[in-house]
């Protein structure tokens, strides 16, 4: 059997002294096949960006990292700097929330894409690379690419800049694209364009995409699989349909119920009480227990592991017992206690 495109296992990232420091990512694992989209969803501080940076060896210097992340069978964690530099920007492309930080402000967009291309392939001439850059800008639907090539990053609007960054990320025909909140800073009509572009790229070029976002809506139609992250762990994983229609984790359910529904605007939103844990003061047992509507005493003692259920994989001790969604919304409105 051939290796999957990306296989992550037991990934841990910590800060501070190894003995009593804090862990921000605590045993994350997933696999991604070529042409598929994995959505990683979670609130701010849940460890999404660190997970991604670990794969690219872009973690801040003081971070400790262990576990395994194999790209086409090759271990990325602890890989030599020279080797990862060769993969990054070639076989693995990345797109961030803020494209401005990814571009050099004093060089034209064209020169920067040409550099990215020639960094990984010295044999290609500047002229040919510039021609390719133009085609890339056209591929990401930037109008008048020949003129746009000669412009500087600040001359691009936010949406155009994000397109240019995607163009640069796919310049060397990567097999894997990692996008961390690529549309968070964009307006909704531009977001729709960018998501459409990413969808097309995965379909037409067979690129595997890890799409990180805090917005469940963004991955609903985009992702084949979704992982919900909380307190440095995946607390639930499954196909998009499984997560949305058959969730078996109170946090996932909470996220869905907290979102305003355009088709059911009258339905009262259900807030999740409290705030996410800080990595320095994580509660014992289930990290979600202090905010969980279903928490029992045992949840505060034992940390649940992801386990296979009928539909999703869920890290909840009470996954099987959770009542249907409707009864919960009603109970919360009437103040009924569900912990028994």
């Amino acid at each position: 059997m051939s290796d999957p495109l990306l296989a992550v296992d037991g990934l841990r990232i910590g800060f501070g002294p190894a003995k009593d420091g804090a862990e921000a990512v605590r045993g994350v694992g997933f696999t991604l096949e070529a042409g598929k989209v994995l959505g990683i969803v979670g609130e701010s501080g849940s460890g999404k960006s660190l997970t991604m940076m670990a794969l690219l060896q872009l973690l801040p210097g003081q971070a400790r990292c262990s576990g395994s992340a194999r790209f086409r069978g090759k271990e990325l964690i602890g890989m030599r700097k020279s080797e990862i530099r060769h993969l990054r920007g070639k076989d693995i492309g990345c797109v961030f929330q803020d494209p401005l930080s990814a571009f050099n402000p004093v060089k034209t967009i064209g020169d920067q894409i040409v550099e990215a291309i020639r960094l990984h392939d010295r044999r290609i001439s500047r002229r040919a690379a510039m021609k390719e850059a133009e085609e890339l800008l056209a591929a990401v639907s930037i109008p008048q690419p020949d003129q746009r090539l000669r412009q500087y990053p600040h001359e691009f609007s936010g949406g155009m800049r994000q397109r240019a960054m995607i163009a640069m990320a796919i310049a060397n025909k990567p097999a894997l694209l990692i996008a961390d909140e690529p549309t968070t800073a964009l307006d909704v009509t531009v977001q729709a364009q960018i998501l459409d572009l990413l969808r097309t790229l995965t379909r037409e070029r067979g690129i595997g995409l890890v799409l990180i976002t805090h917005d469940l809506g963004v991955v609903a139609g985009m992702a084949d699989n979704i992982a919900v992250m909380y307190g440095g762990r995946f607390v639930e994983a499954g196909t998009a349909d499984e997560i949305f229609y058959h969730t078996r984790h109170p946090y996932t359910r909470g996220l869905i119920e907290a979102m305003p529904k355009l088709d059911r605007p009258e339905e009262r939103l259900v807030a999740i009480e409290g705030t996410p844990p800080s990595i320095w003061s994580r509660p014992p047992g289930c990290s979600f227990a202090p905010r969980c509507y279903f928490a029992q005493e045992r949840c505060r003692q034992q940390e649940p592991e992801l386990r296979d259920l009928e539909h999703t994989r869920s890290a909840c001790l009470r996954a099987e017992e959770l009542p249907p969604r409707e009864t919960v919304a009603h109970a919360q409105d009437t103040g009924k206690d569900m912990t028994l």
């Binding site: 729709a192 809506g217 609903a220 949305f244 229609y245 088709d263």
Partner: peptide, 9 residues
Amino acid sequence: LSAIPLSDP
């Protein structure tokens, strides 16, 4: 309205 992602796959 058509650009808003809906939370329904």
